[in-house]
Amino acid sequence: MGIETGIGIIIGVFLIWVGYIVRKKGIYSLLPGFFWITWEPVNSEKLGNRIGTLLIILGVLAILTAIFTIWFGAVVGKISAILALIDGIMIFIVIALDQMGR
């Protein structure tokens, strides 16, 4: 287990922890400070659940990438980078859809 695998696992666990906090305490307490914006969500509970789930998926993806890169090499990194980009885009889409619900 190299240093890269350890860093990937630490980042994955951090993202899972942040996703758990967002799901339990709501999106309003964490996300505006995360993205340096000021806005008020329409439905904080639903938005928190959705973004928390997406952050947990991103954390699991980071852990799986760190583990599977050992056996399969750089191909796994490219695939997971595309999946992480899609997940990040989905987070912004969920925020935009919440703001359209006003």
Results as ranks from 00 to 15, higher is better:
Ile51Pro: 09
Gly52Ser: 03
Gly52Arg: 02
Thr53Asp: 15
Thr53Cys: 07
Thr53Ala: 12
Thr53Glu: 12
Leu54Trp: 02
Leu55Gly: 09
Leu55Lys: 11
Leu55His: 15
Ile56Met: 14
Gly59Lys: 05
Gly59His: 07
Gly59Phe: 04
Gly59Met: 04
Gly59Ile: 01
Val60Gln: 05
Val60Tyr: 06
Ala62Gln: 01
Leu64Thr: 08
Thr65Asp: 07
Thr65Ile: 01
Ile67Thr: 09
Phe68Ile: 06
Thr69Pro: 11
Thr69Leu: 09
Ile70Pro: 00
Trp71Pro: 13
Trp71Thr: 11
Trp71Gly: 05
Phe72Val: 01
Ala74Gly: 06
Val75Asp: 13
Val75Trp: 08
Val76Ile: 15
Val76Leu: 08
Val76His: 00
Gly77Lys: 10
Gly77Cys: 09
Lys78Arg: 10
Ile79Asp: 02
Ile79Met: 08
Ile79Gly: 03
Ser80Ile: 02
Ile82Arg: 03
Ile82Trp: 12
Leu83Asn: 05
Leu83Trp: 06
Leu85Tyr: 15
Ile86Glu: 01
Asp87Phe: 12
Asp87His: 11
Asp87Trp: 13
Asp87Val: 08
Asp87Arg: 08
Gly88Arg: 03
Gly88Phe: 09
Ile89Thr: 11
Ile89Pro: 10
Ile89Arg: 06
Ile89Gly: 06
Phe92Ile: 07
Ile93Met: 10
Ile93Val: 15
Ile93His: 07
Ile93Glu: 06
